[in-house]
């Protein structure tokens, strides 16, 4: 399989080629002027849209990142139990 970098370059290149073709009129199309304006700013929309999506996802995932307080308490108890049991088995702690 081709590396991810080249997958991105291919997809990006195809997008840019199509966009430039439409903007400069190389590609024959019967789209009206208001749609042309949308196409002109399409890369900006894509970038802004992706930025908003990214920030939203990261904020949401950060906010819902579990704080494992119980796991920490459990570990403290485990450490106590282990220390006691190991001592009884003859283990010498410092």
């Amino acid at each position: 399989m081709i590396p991810k970098l080249f997958q991105w370059l291919l997809a990006g290149g195809a997008f840019v080629a199509l966009w430039v073709g439409l903007i400069l009129g190389y590609l024959d199309s019967d789209i009206n002027d208001s749609t042309k304006d949308v196409i002109l700013f399409l890369p900006v929309f894509v970038i802004v849209g992706f930025a908003i999506y990214s920030v939203t996802v990261i904020c949401y995932k950060t906010a819902t990142f579990n704080d494992c307080v119980e796991a920490s308490k459990e570990l403290q108890q485990d450490i106590k139990d282990a220390t006691e049991d190991l001592k009884s088995k003859g283990f010498k702690f410092d």
Partner: peptide, 8 residues
Amino acid sequence: GNGGVFGW
């Protein structure tokens, strides 16, 4: 899921 971190 229930995965997570403590102390961050």
